[in-house]
Design a protein around this nucleic acid. Sequence first.
DNA 1: TAGATTGTTACCGT
DNA 2: CACGGTAACAATCT
Length: 263
Amino acid sequence: MPEILEVESYRQLAEGALDREISGVSVPDPHCLAENTTTAGLTHGLVGCRFTVARRLGKLLLMESAGPTLGVRFGMTGTLVVDDRMAIDRLLYSSGHHSERWVRFALGFVDGGSLALHDPRRFGRVELDPAVDALGPDALSVTPAALRRALATRISGGGPPVKARLQDQAHLAGIGNLLADEILWRAGLSPRRRCGSLTDAEHRRLHRALRSTLTDLSGRGGSHTGDLMAERRAGGHCPRDAAPLRHEQVGGRTTWWCPAHQR
DNA sequence: TAGATTGTTACCGT
DNA sequence: CACGGTAACAATCT
């Protein structure tokens, strides 16, 4: 579920939890706590507080209060539930299912409502006052110049594959595997192209493709609604020119692309 | 059943 | 130091 578009929808859902007094903390699965975070610390820091703003940096949700900030990372399958309402998404593990056993962390409000992390696969994490300085610029607002800086390299030979860098949260925050494939498909760039080999025109195409992908897929309902998605399977063909898609590991992730128009 | 999965981190090698 | 590759993490679905 969660790439930047999903987490942005969780952030909007989280706005419904602002300015409500927190009455209690429940951690049914302590595995979801980050290294520096304990149930006692969460309880001590948050009970009696109210969230003042819901922010997002890349895939990280930040709930600020007058006291500490609550950070939530959603891993592969995490989703946010506020007052038993889930943000709209139709992804694996969340289509229709809403199992109580997937609640890993929850806050109760004095008014009786709640904010909870559901996460079947348990890669999600909750953290008090998470560090945010290691993240690159947010992909939803990145400028052409900032994207170019994010892709810059000094390695002779051209640096990492452009797909690997697009997904590197320290350089650009928010892009995951599905969005990266869709963006590169729209930009007509091979995922294996080295960052240092991109021309000025290709940088511009990449930024435009990033913008159009985030805008279009946000309107359609998420990272899994890309033009390429249905063909991301054995025997899949390019929706643009019908060439058979190629798939290999790039940057450690399964990658699908069209060898005919992605160069 | 075997294989795949939208994320992150640690570690080793170059 | 900057990367690539790999494994690990964990649970579920096809």
